[in-house]
Design a protein around this nucleic acid. Structure first.
Lengths: 146, 146
DNA sequence: CTGCTAGTTGAAGTTAACTTCAACTAGCAG
DNA sequence: CTGCTAGTTGAAGTTAACTTCAACTAGCAG
């Protein structure tokens, strides 16, 4: 029942390069046991973990934050369905916020750039971005905080 | 009528650091005339240009692509309201696509991680991401292509 | 015309998320 | 037990989007 995966197998099944998997390990996002010859062997549960990492990363969450979230999973045992469900609830809220922000951006882009009023001082869209900029900056932050 | 802005003024009014403005100039996104003493002086229209750059960048569009879009603005004259409207229509479509993708991600996160089926091979969410990965990778690409 | 703040340049540094490289070892098919 | 593919490490390289630094000059208030 303990079928372990080599790094090549995990890479093939997750679509993530071996070098990226080693990088994730260095950041503490995943881990592996070692063979006598020092090669990595991954538990099957790692597939789910990597899937979660990739999905969150593609949504713009920095790996460090993903690691913090994963650290909330139970330490001793393989996470259950319920563990993952609990974790995903938090990201659901984040996605909701991001979607709402982009919708506001879109609507204001129509009304604001569309009408030619994009004049910084008076433009609601730009001022919103100023507020966001105060919390951080760049697209990633925009996506992170919502 | 030709009130020009110093880099400090443009920075203060746009919320973008002087070093970033110089960087944008190096990339060809904005430009300035020079005083006798070689200091930059920006036309007021540059404010609108910078606003557009920041908004697009916050949505995840790389500066190089923003530059390509800005290159479509009329060369000889200050862009009119209609010029900006034309430009913004293209970004509107992009935003629509991005919003739609994030909504799909959210819905599948509910159904997929939520139910514990996040098993890569069978997971629709993850497979969608594989397709996306074929076009590029990472959050920025996700946001770029939609 | 003094003095201070604001501006100039080119080079180097920063961060995230990886990839590439070199030099080497493990694991397994035949 | 040979030979090839897959794996190992640490260091260095990559890209985007900037920032920081050093050494210097402009512009303007008083």
């Amino acid at each position: 029942m303990q079928e372990l995966l080599t790094i090549g197998e995990l890479s093939a099944r997750s679509g993530v390069a071996p070098s990226a998997l080693r990088y994730y390990e260095k950041l503490g996002l995943i881990w592996a046991t070692r063979t006598g010859g020092n090669q990595r062997r991954y538990e099957r549960a790692t597939l789910r973990r990597v899937a979660f990492i990739r999905i969150a990363a593609q949504v713009g969450v920095p790996l460090e934050e993903i690691g913090a979230a994963l650290a909330d999973l139970p330490a001793g045992r393989t996470p259950t369905r319920a563990d993952w469900a609990r974790l995903s609830r938090a990201w659901r809220g984040r996605l909701d916020e991001q979607i709402a922000l982009m919708q506001r951006l879109r609507d204001q882009l129509d009304g604001c750039i569309g009408c030619g009023c994009l004049s910084l001082k008076t433009c609601g869209l730009y001022n919103r971005n100023d507020e966001l900029a105060a919390q951080g900056s760049g697209p990633v932050r925009l996506l992170r905080r919502g």
